[in-house]
Every structure is written in structure tokens, then in C-alpha cells.
């Protein structure tokens, strides 16, 4: 068990530092990287990102096991998302380079690129958090770029082309699947929170949680409404 965690830690550090020796090792031994390590990294990243955005869980009073279930679920959905990303990259990579990379190897490699998002919990930091999240996204993109470069053994510009087309394809997919995904998300949300509506900070400002917050302090004597 300890060895597993140590291996996860070493791999995360390797991706964070964009360690080329790790890339070379992976290129030479693509099957050596255990699936469990790559999945663990993506799960951690998914959970950490949700911690960073946990304001939505707190506002909606998701506590205890529901809170942890949300983190685990986000971890799984993150793995799934990047598996689809890997599928997209293998397709684009085939078209651009003519090389066929096995999907299991591609998934393992692409999941590694989520390592910077393990710091996603830092988005919690007041005021600076959203900026840190943008930096992490950019870092993740650079990591993915490096992974693609190693995976296909191509130069940086070709790797960038594959990465960018893959990213664009994912954006298009998420736009096309927005409606069914929202439906699925609402279903999961209902199961987790017990209510169907999602309370946001904006709702709180509008006073929707404790109506009538726009107090109607009608004075009995005058019968007038206070603006």
C-alpha cells in the first residue's frame, strides 16, 4: 500500500515538474504505468477541484457522507471525462501523425495530465482562488501537451496541434451533450441533496433562501410600504 502511495506521489511530482525523464520512461515502457496510479491521480484531481468549488456544497448544506459522496462522484466523473479526452486524442493523433496508439495507453497517459488539478482545492482561497484555478487549468494544458508529445514522439508544435484540436473537440462535445448531462447532473444532485434546486450565492443575495428578505416592513399606522 505504502509503495502505491509513494508511486502516486512520485508520478504527481514528475508531472508537476514536467519531468522529461518520466516522459522518456513512460514512452519506453507504456505498459509499466499501472492503471490504478493514473486513475488515483485523476480521482484526486476531481475531488480536489470540487473541494475548491465546495462553496456550492456548503450553500446547499451538503454535509457528512453526502459531502464525501459528492467528492468521490466528482472524482469518477473526472476520470470519465479524461478517458473521453484520451479517445479524442487517439483519433486526432491517428489523423495527424498516422500513428495508432492503444486506447488503454492513451487513457493512462492523459489521466496523468490531471496531476496539476490536484491543487484544485486552492481555489477555496478567498479572492485569489479563481485566478489560481485558471493557472492550474493552463498548467494542466501544458502537462497534456507534454504527454501528447511523449505519447506520439512528435515535435512540440505537432503535439500542440493535437492537444488544441482535442480540447476544441471536448468543448464541442460538452456543448452538444449539455442538455442530457444537465439532466443527469440534476438527478444526481437530487439524490445527494434531497432537493432539486441548486442554491447559489446570487440566490442568497436575492434573499430566496429566507423570503421575504426584501422586507415589507409595512407600518400598521400608515399602511405604507417601505421602499
Amino acid at each position: 500500500m505504502w509503495e502505491f502511495f509513494a508511486a502516486v506521489g512520485r508520478t504527481i511530482w514528475g508531472v508537476w515538474t514536467l519531468d522529461t525523464s518520466l516522459g522518456v520512461w513512460f514512452a519506453a515502457n507504456p505498459q509499466s504505468l499501472q492503471v490504478s496510479i493514473a486513475v488515483a491521480i485523476a480521482m484526486l484531481a476531481g475531488a480536489s477541484i470540487l473541494v475548491g468549488n465546495s462553496v456550492v456544497l456548503f450553500l446547499n448544506r451538503i454535509r457528512g457522507w453526502r459531502f464525501f459522496a459528492s467528492l468521490v462522484l466528482n472524482g469518477f466523473s473526472f476520470v470519465l471525462l479524461y478517458a473521453v479526452q484520451a479517445l479524442a486524442i487517439t483519433g486526432i493523433g491517428l489523423m495527424v501523425t498516422g500513428q495508432r496508439v492503444g486506447l488503454p495507453v492513451a487513457i493512462r497517459a492523459v489521466l496523468l495530465a490531471t496531476a496539476p488539478m490536484i491543487l484544485g482545492f486552492l481555489e477555496l482561497i478567498p479572492y485569489l482562488g479563481p485566478g489560481i484555478a485558471r493557472i492550474l487549468q493552463a498548467w494542466g494544458m501544458v502537462a497534456l501537451w507534454t504527454v501528447v508529445e511523449v505519447l506520439y514522439g512528435v515535435n512540440r508544435s505537432t503535439a500542440l496541434l493535437i492537444t488544441l484540436i482535442g480540447w476544441g473537440l471536448m468543448q464541442a462535445l460538452s456543448w452538444m451533450l449539455a442538455a442530457p448531462l444537465t439532466k443527469l447532473g440534476n438527478l444526481v444532485w437530487l439524490r445527494l441533496s434531497g432537493h432539486s434546486t441548486l442554491l447559489t450565492a446570487h440566490d442568497l443575495l436575492a434573499g430566496q433562501q429566507f423570503m421575504p428578505v426584501e422586507f415589507d416592513f409595512t407600518l400598521p399606522e400608515t399602511g405604507g410600504r417601505q421602499p
Partner: peptide, 27 residues
Amino acid sequence: FLVLTVGPLESLGWWSHQGADEVPRTV
């Protein structure tokens, strides 16, 4: 960074555990 990260948890935790009930009662 850790201290900064836990900074918002006091008020968020308050809302989650009691504030959401307390505020409508106050109103």
C-alpha cells in the same frame, strides 16, 4: 496557503450548520 484555504470555512460552515435556519428565524 493552507491557512488561506481554510479561511472561508468558518462562515461557510456556519451557514451550512445553522445560518440557513437561523436567518429565516431572525427575519
